[in-house]
C-alpha cells in the first residue's frame, strides 16, 4: 500500500477577476454536501463549509477525521487515488472544480499545497524552486533568478 501525500496547508493564488467573477466578501472555496468515499469507506460526510478570502483558515480534528482528505479535495489530488468516488460539489470562486471543462493542471497551479513530508525532485535546489514556474512556461532566466531568490530569502525560509 503506497501512502499518499498529506497536505498541511493550502494557499490560493490571487484569482483572475474577469474569469472567476468574485465580488467582495466572497468565499474562495465553498463545498456543498460534499461526500467522499474511498471505495466502500466514506471519509467525508456531507461537508458544507465556506472558506473566506484573505484569511487563514485552520482545520482541527482528531486523527483520521478527514482533514487531509478535504484539503486534498481542493485541488483534486484525490483523483489520483484509485476507487475514489465523490458526491456534492466544491466551488472555487463560484465555479465547480469538478466540471468536465476544468483543466486539473490549471486548478492545481492555482491551489498551492504544502505537504507534511518534503519531497525534493531529483534536480538542483534552483530547479526545485523554479519547477512550478517552469511548468507555467516561464523559462526566462532573469525572471526565474529573481523569483527563486525571492522564494529562498522570503517569508518561508528567512526573515524579511
Amino acid at each position: 500500500m503506497t501512502t499518499v501525500q498529506t497536505p498541511i496547508s493550502v494557499s490560493i493564488a490571487p484569482m483572475d477577476k474577469d474569469n472567476l467573477d468574485i465580488g467582495k466578501e466572497v468565499s474562495t472555496f465553498e463545498t456543498k454536501n460534499f461526500n467522499l468515499f474511498y471505495g466502500e469507506k466514506q471519509a467525508l460526510h456531507g461537508v458544507n463549509i465556506k472558506i473566506p478570502e484573505h484569511r487563514v483558515t485552520a482545520f482541527i480534528g482528531p486523527s483520521g477525521c478527514g482533514k487531509s482528505t478535504l484539503l486534498r479535495s481542493f485541488n483534486r489530488m484525490n483523483d489520483l487515488v484509485d476507487n475514489v468516488r465523490i458526491e456534492g460539489e466544491i466551488l472555487l470562486g463560484g465555479k465547480d472544480i469538478h466540471h468536465p471543462k476544468v483543466d486539473v493542471s490549471n486548478l492545481r497551479r492555482q491551489v498551492g499545497m504544502v505537504f507534511q513530508r518534503p519531497n525534493p525532485f531529483p534536480k538542483s535546489i534552483y530547479e526545485n524552486v523554479g519547477y512550478g514556474l517552469r511548468l507555467q512556461g516561464v523559462n526566462q532566466r532573469s525572471i526565474l533568478d529573481d523569483k527563486v531568490e525571492w522564494a529562498l530569502k522570503g517569508p518561508p525560509c528567512g526573515t524579511r
Binding site: T2, T3, V4, Q5, P7, N75, M77, L80, S105, N106, L107, R108, R109, Q110, G112, M113, F115, R117, N119, F121, P122, K123, Y131, G132, L135, Q136
Partner: peptide, 25 residues
C-alpha cells in the same frame, strides 16, 4: 515513490510533464 509524483502533480504538472521531468530521470 508516489509522493514524488504527487508533489509534481500538485504543482500543476500534467502527467506527461511529471513523467519527463521527474519519473523518467
Amino acid at each position: 515513490p508516489r509522493n514524488l509524483r504527487e508533489g509534481s502533480l500538485a504543482l500543476g504538472a500534467t502527467k506527461a510533464e511529471t513523467l519527463w521531468k521527474v519519473v523518467l530521470p
